[in-house]
Structure formats: structure tokens, C-alpha cells
């Protein structure tokens, strides 16, 4: 309110002084960007190029020796079945988790976009697990999924089903990690969708109500089009986040069984910090980088196409 008043009160004086206030500030304006740019340069741009350089070396982390080997690391990567497996796993994980994040996040936001205590409590529950750190999450779920004695085993056994061992199943290990990940951080997409839903002017809904539009029709023709930008935003955020899968896999399955759940990041970590092959690890990093670029370019293209309608 105060803002609106301020605007009104001063609106007539704007034109008079506008030109003078702006003069001579062009260079000074760049100072706003400077602090971030310095950090950005030191912590992101330089490492990025340094990483590309390291990927052309054979570096042993402990003995500090480095030899230039050209593209050898990359050639080796693509004949490394563990790496190929990790690439496929990562894509698979992004592919199964992102749609769930969007669909479930949106569904929850729609259902919980209501005033009152019930809505608030439910929102709190679904968002609550996001504040847990990955080690708590994996600990909890390892316990839940523990064969024979875990919570899930207790449940399946009490209804006479055999005890499942999801984390040691080649088929289920990665999907299980996806479920755990959704459980962990569904809160963020839900909140982003809620914020978007609440930005939709109420009058539109009231008009629709007057027209006796059905729930589905309202959803399809009013709600979804109004938040399509948020859908794209959530999709991009989730793709970025899920490409970076690491802790859950490393702590819950160590990448197994049969390399069925090792993501690229774990491969990078193991190559660099377990096997001390920094060059090899850096090369794998560049591949991850390239993959994310492609995926994001695709998404940006897709969402810009949608918005053209």
C-alpha cells in the first residue's frame, strides 16, 4: 500500500528531474555487477577452463605428476563400460524423476492451494523433508528398506508378501533412489507451483465459476496456461538438480548392483578422489557438462515452442 501511495505522490515530479538523475552514472552502474562478477570469474569461469586443461593431462593426485596426453582420457572414457553405464544411469534417472517432480509437485500445489490449517499442515509435511540433509535421508531410507527388518519389510511381511530387497535389485535400485529423491525434495517444486498459482488473479476463476466451467476445464484452460512459465522453470531446475545425483546413490547403493545405479558424479568422485586420476575425472566432468548443455538447450527449445502457441 505504501508503495502505491509513494508512486502516486511522486508521479508528477518524475518527468522534471529524470534526465539529470541518470546522467553520468553509466560506469558506476556496472559496480552493481562487479562483486558477483569477481566471484563468478574466480569460482566458476577460471575453474571451468582449468578443468578443460586438466582433462587433457594425466595427473596423479598424490604424486603431483602431470603429463600432457591430449584426448587420451576421453578416448579411454568411451571404452570404459562403467562410465558408459554411469551416463545411461544418469539419463535414466533424470528421465524418470523430472516428470514426477513436475506432476506430483503441481498436483500437490493444486490440492493444497487452500486457506486454513489443514492446507498449511499438509504443505508443511510435504515440504518438511527438504530441510533434511542427504545423510539423514539416506539413513532413514536405508533403515526403511533394510531387508527382513526394515519398515517396508515389516509391512510386506505383515500382509504375507515376501521381503523385498530393492537396493540390491538391478532393476529397482535406481528407481528406488528416485523415489527417495522425490520424497526428499518434492517441496521445492511444490512451493514454486504454489507461488505461481497464487499469482493468478482471482477474478479469472470467479469468471469461470460464473460460466459454470468444470474443474478440469478450469485447470486446462485457465490454471495451466497461466503457470506455463513456472512449469518450464521447474523443469529446468529439476533437470539441473537431478543430473547432479550423487549422495543418495553413493550412500545407499554405492552405485551397484552391477553398476545399475552409479551416476556420473559418483564416477567423477571415484575417479578423482578414490583412484587419484584427476585428469580422467576432469574429462568425465566435461562429458557431464556437455550432456547437461544438450538437455537444457532441448528444454529451452521445447518450452519456447510451447509458449509460441
Amino acid at each position: 500500500m505504501t508503495v502505491a501511495m509513494k508512486v502516486e505522490a511522486s508521479a508528477d515530479r518524475i518527468q522534471a528531474r529524470k534526465r539529470g538523475a541518470r546522467a553520468g552514472q553509466r560506469w558506476g552502474n556496472a559496480l552493481f555487477i562487479l562483486p558477483f562478477l569477481v566471484v563468478y570469474l574466480l569460482m566458476l569461469v577460471i575453474p571451468l577452463f582449468k578443468g578443460i586443461w586438466i582433462s587433457l593431462l594425466e595427473v596423479d593426485m598424490l604424486s603431483n605428476s602431470a603429463d600432457f596426453v591430449g584426448l587420451d582420457n576421453y578416448v579411454e572414457l568411451f571404452s570404459d563400460e562403467i562410465f558408459i553405464g554411469a551416463v545411461l544411469n544418469t539419463f535414466y534417472f533424470v528421465l524418470i524423476s523430472t516428470p514426477v517432480f513436475i506432476a506430483l509437485g503441481l498436483a500437490l500445489a493444486l490440492a493444497l492451494n487452500r486457506p486454513g490449517r489443514t492446507g498449511a499442515t499438509l504443505r508443511a509435511i510435504f515440504f518438511g523433508s527438504s530441510v533434511l540433509s542427504v545423510t539423514i535421508v539416506t539413513l532413514v531410507w536405508k533403515l526403511v528398506l533394510m531387508p527382513h527388518h526394515g519398515m517396508l519389510a515389516n509391512i510386506t511381511e505383515s500382509v504375507g508378501l515376501p521381503s523385498l530387497s530393492l537396493l540390491t535389485s538391478e532393476t529397482w535400485a535406481l528407481p528406488t533412489i528416485a523415489v527417495v529423491t522425490v520424497w526428499w525434495i518434492i517441496g521445492l517444486p511444490m512451493m514454486l507451483f504454489l507461488a505461481a498459482l497464487q499469482q493468478i488473479p482471482r477474478e479469472i476463476y470467479e469468471a469461470a465459476a460464473l460460466d459454470n466451467a468444470s474443474r478440469w476445464r478450469t485447470l486446462w484452460s485457465i490454471t495451466l496456461p497461466s503457470i506455463r512459465r513456472t512449469v518450464a522453470l521447474v523443469a529446468i531446475i529439476e533437470v539441473i538438480l537431478q543430473f547432479q545425483l550423487f549422495g543418495q546413490a553413493q550412500l545407499m547403493t554405492q552405485g551397484g548392483p552391477n553398476n545399475s545405479s552409479r551416476p556420473i558424479v559418483q564416477f567423477i568422485y571415484e575417479a578423482g578422489f578414490r583412484n587419484w586420476e584427476l585428469g580422467y575425472a576432469a574429462a568425465a566432468s566435461q562429458v557431464l557438462f556437455a550432456m547437461m548443455l544438450v538437455a537444457m538447450a532441448f528444454q529451452v527449445w521445447l518450452s519456447s515452442r510451447k509458449q509460441a502457441y
Binding site: 579411454e76 570404459d80 563400460e81 562403467i82 540390491t168 535389485s169 538391478e170 551397484g256 548392483p257 552391477n258 553398476n259 545399475s260
Partner: peptide, 26 residues
């Protein structure tokens, strides 16, 4: 890891041996 693959995922013993050689020798 590779022997676990043999037991848990039915990876044939010959493939397991090959994978071990390839990965370890690297």
C-alpha cells in the same frame, strides 16, 4: 563389485572375469 554382479545380477562368470581384467588392469 564384479563378483557381486555374478551373484546378484546373473552376470556370466566369463564376463565377470573379463570385466575384472579390463577394469583392474586399467
Amino acid at each position: 563389485e564384479e563378483i557381486s554382479n555374478m551373484m546378484l545380477s546373473d552376470k556370466p562368470a566369463d564376463d565377470v572375469k573379463q570385466s575384472i581384467e579390463k577394469r583392474v588392469n586399467r
